[in-house]
């Protein structure tokens, strides 16, 4: 439903995206990854019409998003910016209610539909119990769920999120990503998120977009495109890709960068499994669910000398 055509965007003098063509599949969870300053946030902000492109266009169901009335866009596409400003003293229900803005006018400020949408959104994001609490008194994880609830109250087909897991601990990161996954699977929403963690991207994404220096390097299902070669090309990092023991999705483990990091006990045994695991092609997700921890460590140790630079 969202695509870009020859997109050029940036800030002031700096051009970040230069002629980007991208197709984002509908009813999928798309994750955009890439190194810092690669343009992934710029891309998300441009997709959400928060940033006006210099050239080219973002197409929402074939129509240029900049030419659609912003209220109409807000009914079809919601966006959660990176670390939004928490207004002082605003209650959770109030903030989630702001998500109904595109359906409201000053002479029609609230309807039954607004009530039920806010209700559904708060239940879905599991913040119904916090309805009367001021948002600025909540923990980071709770806040993030409240912001997501606000975007859910917008009742849109698509939801765009810019690093929704930053500043959250691991348990809360998983919680937020599980929520996004449920939205896609149970509600059929199109979800697009910028994430930092490659392994989380691989675990949750149906469609992975890897960016580098303002261009898309690869796009597709993570199990097909996420290889050690891709990680090296995109992040300039040597790594080993093994199947995740829990989901079978590709798991990116950085190569041994210093011999002192490896456990000497794990380094000594036979080199046979190391050779097999070091080759990224061999780590197909259809294979057994990963080696033992010792095997993994050996793989790292084994990969180190051959990838030295």
């Amino acid at each position: 439903m969202l695509s870009t055509r020859d997109l050029v965007a940036g800030y002031d003098e700096r051009t970040v995206l230069d002629g980007l063509d991208l197709e984002l599949p509908a009813d999928a969870f798309t994750v955009i990854v890439g190194p810092n300053a690669c343009g992934k946030s710029t891309l998300l902000r441009t997709l959400a019409r928060l940033l006006v492109p210099r050239r080219g266009a973002v197409l929402l169901d074939g129509k240029a998003i900049q030419e659609l009335p912003t209220r109409e866009v807000a009914r079809r596409l919601a966006v959660l910016p990176q670390s939004p400003l928490v207004p002082e003293g605003v209650t959770v229900a109030d903030l989630v209610g702001r998500g109904r803005q595109p359906y409201q006018r000053w002479w029609r400020q609230w309807s039954e539909e607004d009530s039920s949408a806010v209700d559904r959104a708060m239940a879905l994001a599991d913040v119904a119990g916090l309805a009367d609490r001021p948002v600025d008194t909540l923990s980071g994880g709770q806040r993030q769920r409240v912001w997501i609830a606000m975007t859910l109250a917008q009742d849109t087909e698509a939801l765009l999120l810019d690093e929704p897991t930053t500043f959250l601990d691991l348990a809360h990161q998983v919680e937020v990503l599980d929520l996004l996954h449920r939205l896609r699977v149970e509600r059929g929403r199109t979800v697009v998120a910028v994430l930092h963690d490659l392994n989380q991207a691989a675990r949750y994404a149906d469609h992975l977009v890897a960016m580098r220096a303002g261009a898309v390097v690869a796009a597709g299902p993570p199990r097909e495109i996420l290889t050690a070669d891709l990680v090296r090309e995109v992040f300039g990092l040597d790594c080993v890709v093994v199947p995740c023991p829990v989901t079978g999705a590709p798991l990116v483990v950085p190569a041994l960068t210093s011999p002192t990091l490896a456990d000497p006990a794990a380094r000594t045994p036979e080199p046979a499994p190391a050779g097999a695991a070091a080759a990224p092609e061999a780590s197909s997700p259809t294979g057994s669910t990963g080696g033992t921890p010792a095997g993994g460590a050996t793989a790292l140790a084994g990969s180190y000398p051959s990838e030295g630079h």
Partner: peptide, 24 residues
């Protein structure tokens, strides 16, 4: 002023969030 009373409700939101919910 009648409009302003309503519009002030969203004045505390940052610009990206405000644009996201369809405001200018």
């Amino acid at each position: 002023l009648a409009w302003a009373g309503w519009a002030l409700n969203s004045s505390a939101l940052d610009d990206d969030t405000a644009r996201g919910i369809g405001l200018r």
